[in-house]
């Protein structure tokens, strides 16, 4: 049943460029990018119990890595760009994560928020490096070594780049699925549920939280690098705290207790935002109301409504959040 559903979804995604209009096909591109980002974010929240309110930092790292490599260093191969983005994120996340995972709950959220804003003000103020609020251009990358610049931009996005993104998402999903169903994934869930008990069973709580942080940062950067080519432009808003809030929103909208929930959230968010904006300019009002409704009435998100078992985690949890 589950497999059949997954196969159907994959078939629909693969067929989409041939059946849907270019406009909707290009809307799928941010969906793929955000899906990669959210797979990582949910490893940290849904599986490890840490809410990052600064994950836009790593989206920014990935997006600016793509911009720097294509427009400053002439590195056009997207494979190299994605690897470099992930590598840069790991290097940056390792020390930041080391500090952040010493705290939980609101203190963790605040520390990640502060790091995110630190990076944002760097992007904004060091304009001679980063282009300031103008941002930077992301040139059309080569895919698998092929320079496709003779193809019209829209055609490039809706065919080769579309399928390229699908493959990246598929690989990212497969790897994340392995991670959450590994012994390591089990330890993360134990840490989320009760860190004291996990520690007394010999689980290195801080070290595993740190692994989860670094992995999720790498995912965010890969997703961030995929965001660039669609718009051809990156700017500091990618790293702003409201962007962090929005991806948390997507995660909650779909449901963090389910592996695919955040992906559903990303899809609904992007297409609903597009629909609402075509009717009224006030998408934030509508989305704020939706978020409030989810938090109050359906903390399990859309997938939680389908799968009632998963909801109770949002209840007041068991450990104190104060730092030592």
């Amino acid at each position: 049943m589950r497999r059949a559903g997954l196969a159907l979804v994959v078939a629909l995604i693969l067929a989409m460029p041939f059946v849907a209009g270019d406009y909707y096909v290009t809307l799928m591109l941010p969906f793929f990018a955000y899906s990669v980002i959210l797979l990582g974010l949910n490893l940290l929240f849904g599986y490890t119990g840490l809410l990052s309110f600064g994950h836009a930092l790593f989206i920014g790292v990935g997006a600016y890595a793509a911009a720097f490599l294509t427009s400053k260093f002439g590195v056009m191969h997207l494979e190299a760009i994605l690897l470099a983005a992930a590598g840069a994120a790991v290097l940056i996340a390792a020390p930041i994560g080391g500090l952040c995972v010493r705290y939980v709950k609101i203190y963790f959220a605040m520390l990640t928020l502060a790091f995110g804003m630190l990076f944002h003000s760097f992007l904004l103020k060091f304009y001679f490096v980063t282009g300031g609020d103008e941002g930077m251009r992301v040139l059309q990358p080569f895919l698998l070594g092929f320079d496709l610049s003779q193809i019209p931009k829209v055609r490039f996005l809706t065919r080769p780049f579309y399928y390229y993104s699908v493959v990246v998402l598929a690989v990212a999903t497969f790897v994340m699925w392995r991670i959450v169903s590994s012994p390591f994934g089990l330890c993360l869930r134990a840490i989320r549920d009760n860190p004291d008990k996990a520690q007394s069973l010999g689980v290195s709580v801080k070290r595993y939280r740190w692994y989860a942080f670094v992995i999720s940062a790498a995912y965010a950067a890969v997703g961030g690098a995929l965001l660039g080519p669609t718009t051809g432009q990156v700017d500091p808003n990618l790293a702003y705290w409201t962007h962090s809030g929005n991806i948390v929103f997507m995660m909650l909208l779909g449901g963090f207790a389910n592996f695919f929930g955040p992906l559903v959230g990303a899809l609904v968010f992007i297409f609903l935002q597009d629909t609402v904006m075509s009717i009224v300019p006030y998408w934030r009002l509508v989305f704020g109301a939706i978020l409030a409704l989810i938090v109050i009435a359906a903390p399990g998100g859309l997938m939680g409504l389908l799968d009632r078992r998963a909801v109770s985690w949002g209840e007041k949890s068991r450990q104190g959040g104060a730092p030592p």
Binding site: F45, I106, G245, G288, L291, A292, E315
Partner: peptide, 18 residues
Amino acid sequence: DRDETFQLLLTFAVVLML
């Protein structure tokens, strides 16, 4: 009576609406 991360998110919803 909820986890504080959810309370934080609810205030974020208010930010969006306002």
